[in-house]
Design a protein around this nucleic acid. Structure first.
Lengths: 89, 89
DNA sequence: ACCCGTCATACCGAAACGGTATTGGACGCG
DNA sequence: CGCGTCCAATACCGTTTCGGTATGACGGGT
């Protein structure tokens, strides 16, 4: 599992649409879909289901989403903590 | 930044020795060193200094270490949460 | 029936990763 | 003061992973 996968997952969950999430992330749709699929396989759980105009979070996806946001928040905090007193050179 | 880098960093910090950390992680020393170097560059801060028999955490490294452990703990929690009720098939 | 939106699959080139071999540098010992 | 030892650092290479383009499959709406 990678941080990129987690970030991708959060955006797809927020958009409910893989293609739109891809545009927002600045990547194309196929790699994004593959990363999500890889995440599902690694977790051993399906996170989304297909619906007419996109995808919808399954219950397990919702559970993971909360954790995912926490992880990304921690990462940001870690970066910020190290950068204190270190303006962009 | 990747989760692998964070995991590598924690082990190097614990061992105080890149080569030993590499053996413990099951990778070889050069890639491990490069990952650490990449992490330092991305953070814009040096995390270790060289000492006679290995490396020593700098103050900023210690700050990052605490965050790193939290991140890894959150990741484990996320995985565990999704796996509830899903014993290894 | 046709078109449009969306995810899925196939294939390819580029970038990242890890491995082996080697070098460089500092400490410790005679 | 040189020499061996113990590390991290660098060079180079093969493999794997990743992202991109092109295309297919499936459904809904008009």
């Amino acid at each position: 599992m990678s941080l990129a996968q987690i970030r991708y997952f959060v955006v797809v969950a927020e958009e409910g649409n893989v293609g739109r999430a891809a545009r927002r992330l600045g990547v194309s749709q196929p790699p994004l879909r593959r990363q999500i699929q890889g995440l599902e396989e690694e977790l051993g759980a399906r996170l989304f289901e297909r619906i007419p105009r996109g995808v919808r979070l399954l219950p397990e996806g919702a559970v993971f989403l909360a954790h995912a946001r926490r992880i990304l928040g921690e990462v940001d905090a870690a970066v910020a903590a190290v950068r204190i007193g270190r303006p962009p050179t």
